[in-house]
Nucleic acid binder design. Structure first.
Length: 501
RNA sequence: GCUGCUAUAGUGUAGGGGCCAAUCAUGUCGGCCUUUCACGCCGACGACUGGGGUUCAAAUCCCCAUAGCAGCACCA
């Protein structure tokens, strides 16, 4: 039945329902509402300081930021540095820089390493409540028991014994791996991931860069305590945390706290890019990457270096949203978001790759005036002067008998074997069109800058206009090549990073 | 293996019983514009994982299958 047929059929059998059909649903580009957020929210972004921020962090931080902006409230940057093995002292500053670059509306910054006493305190309370015990079992042994749903002997210790052992932990009487504090959950829980997980452990080495301690909370414990103490109302994070959310729930329940509202978005795959911090670090150490801002990486600094703007990242991430489906991140979509930002402001310049230097016979001295931006004449022109000696992209003249140098004049080409002989052929644009002469880029042979355009799939050597030297840190468009950020000019040599077409 | 989550065009997304022979963006292809490219404008292409069920009506609800993903760390 077609929709129209269904409608007429419905009017026969139940005309009173027909009114509902005429109600129009409204479409909105907004992300779904968060329940209980009407009066403001307190949200958090909680990176581990093991390296700079990457696209995975960008999604988490931007999505939370989006809702804080939408509902108003506070946005806590919580640096989760409770594992000395995974803390890179240099990462603290990198995280802060990247947060600033992204333009997140952070209102509070807390470091978990400043809060160890708080965790110790609540750990003691949890033991007193009978919600946790000190476990002396070897890890592998406990795992076996857990998978069978059996308790280990430590689970039967009295509160007093547990408190005593806990004090010994704090006093440094144990070494790494000897002991852990476990949250008492449910050994019969159908999901083995829920059974008596660890809340506290000892790390003797390496030393923590910020704090003199050996007892550290595990993520599930510190996160639950902090979310409550900091008054976090809503949490948006990846679905790899779904099990953690359930584990943290036990702590909220033991203390009678009200947990935040959670949303878990699906996994985001990024083709061709290593996203794990450890993987990137390995690549840097082994020389595959030049550093954290290597153009092959998905870090914020690599993306920034290529001239992609934070607003583009934000738009791309909000566009992706908080769906629970696994998705693959699309560079195309990010590039398109960036292009709409950058196209209106990027100045245009010639870039001649694989150049051939030629003399155009009979060419008069000419001044070419090319617009800096085709849609914005007020920005002015670049003036290129030539006496007849020019640089051309080899590929653009090969096999051609006539071309037009853009904004300059027409040129005839005669081929003597592989050697082109070029001669001036008038200024008429109409004639060039009539002859279907391609319009190509060029540079005066005596006014040019060598330029390396670094791209992910190999760099492109060529020459560009001298004015490009004044565009350091800006995004320009090399006509016919694409957008690029001018990274530096050293001794008259330009280094540019390719963004996208 | 156990536990859980998810399934709409190449990619991302909207739609949560009737407005849906399915939205928007991106992409690709064509055209217009343009002193190449880009931008802009016009057009085309392209999807409800499969099978059952409920219902007058299913992309939408239920069941099964399949696939993907996550967790089962003294990482976050």
């Amino acid at each position: 039945m077609s929709p129209a047929e269904r409608k007429s059929h419905l009017s026969e059998i139940a005309p009173e329902l027909l009114a509902e059909l005429t109600e129009t649903r409204e479409h909105s580009r907004d992300l779904p509402a968060l329940e209980g957020a009407e009066n403001g929210v307190v949200m958090r972004f909680a990176p581990n300081p093991s390296g700079p921020l990457h696209l995975g962090h960008a999604r988490a931080s931007i999505l939370n930021d989006y809702y804080v902006r939408r509902y108003g409230g506070r946005y806590v940057l919580r640096v989760e540095d409770t594992d000395p093995k995974r803390v890179d002292p240099e990462a603290y500053a990198m995280v802060l820089e990247d947060v600033e670059w992204l333009g997140l509306g952070i209102t509070d910054i807390v470091y978990q390493s400043d809060r160890l006493d708080i965790y110790y305190d609540w750990c003691r309370k949890l033991i007193e409540l009978g919600g946790a015990y000190v476990c002396l079992c070897e890890g592998e042994r406990f795992r076996e028991l857990k998978l069978k749903g059996k308790a280990c002997p430590c689970r039967e210790l009295t509160v007093e014994e547990n408190l005593d052992l806990w004090q010994q932990m704090l006093d440094g009487e144990f070494y790494e791996g000897d002991v852990t504090v476990r949250v008492k959950t449910d050994l019969a829980h159908p999901d083995p991931a829920m059974r008596d997980y660890s809340a506290m452990r000892i790390v003797n080495a390496p030393l923590h860069p910020r704090v003199d301690a050996t007892v550290f909370p595990l993520m599930n414990f510190s996160v639950a305590v902090d979310d409550h103490l900091l008054g976090i109302t809503h949490v948006i994070r990846g679905k790899d945390h779904i099990a953690n959310t359930r584990r943290q729930r036990y702590i909220f329940d033991y203390f009678g706290w009200k947990p935040p509202v959670y949303r878990h978005y699906g996994r985001m795959g990024i083709s061709g890019v290593v996203l794990s911090t450890s993987g990137m670090r390995e690549g840097i150490n082994s020389g595959i990457y030049t550093g954290w801002d290597d153009i092959h990486l998905g870090t914020m600094r690599a993306i920034a270096r290529r001239g992609i703007e934070p607003e583009a990242v934000r738009n791309a991430m909000v566009d992706i949203g908080i769906g629970e489906t696994d998705i693959s991140f699309s560079w195309e979509n990010l590039y398109s978001r960036n292009k709409e930002l950058v196209d209106p402001k990027a100045n245009r310049y010639f870039f001649v790759p694989d150049p051939i230097e030629v003399v155009v016979e009979g060419a008069p001295r000419h001044e070419a005036h090319a617009a800096l931006h085709p849609n914005d004449p007020s920005r002015g022109v670049r003036t290129l002067v030539t006496e007849g000696k020019v640089l051309l992209p080899r590929a653009d003249i090969e096999g051609k008998s006539m071309v037009r140098l853009k904004d300059l004049y027409n040129m005839k080409i005669e081929w003597d074997a592989d050697e082109p002989r070029l001669s001036y052929a008038g200024d008429s644009l109409e004639e060039a069109r009539r002859e279907k002469a391609p319009i190509i880029q060029w540079l005066p042979a005596d006014a040019k800058l060598p330029c390396t355009l670094l791209r992910q799939d190999g760099s492109l050597e060529g020459f560009c206009e001298p004015l490009v030297a004044g565009e350091v840190d800006n995004v320009v468009q090399f006509e016919r090549i694409g957008f690029a950020r001018i990274d530096s000019v050293d001794n008259g040599r330009v280094s540019a990073y390719f963004a996208h077409r």
